[in-house]
Amino acid sequence: MQQDAARLKVTHEGDIVQVEFTSRKILDEANIAEIGDQLSALVEAEHRPRLVISFAGVDHLSSAALGTLITINNKVKNRDGQLRLCNINPQIFEVFLITKLNTLFHIYPTIKEALESLRSGAQTGRLQ
């Protein structure tokens, strides 16, 4: 099942929710608020959310975007769920390294590996 929202492309794979961004730049304040609301709604719709967020095609982000991801991560954890990030380009991954958020998020090179980690119950990301 697939549904297209303004800022996100959402696909359901069994009980796993896959999300891709439709904008290459997710740093705009208006975009971020909207993206945060849509992601929150996805998390709150699940009892124990299992979410994969792909950064394919995203070429920029800001600390506001990082803040939104952290808020979503906290919501997922509060519902005893799991969040995976994947397809992060090297320049953006550097932002995760600088902020040490690579140690907070579970990050995988590809969506396939992120999905496999959820199915196998792996507790750490491939990219640290």
Binding site: S62, S63, L66, G67, T68, I70, T71, N73, N74, V95, I98, T99, K100, L101, T103, L104
Partner: peptide, 17 residues
């Protein structure tokens, strides 16, 4: 913002970046 106790805070990374 990179200290363990602050990693889950949603803001405070602008100056670091």
């Amino acid at each position: 913002p990179t200290a363990d106790q602050n990693l889950e805070r949603a803001c405070g990374r602008g100056v670091l970046l």
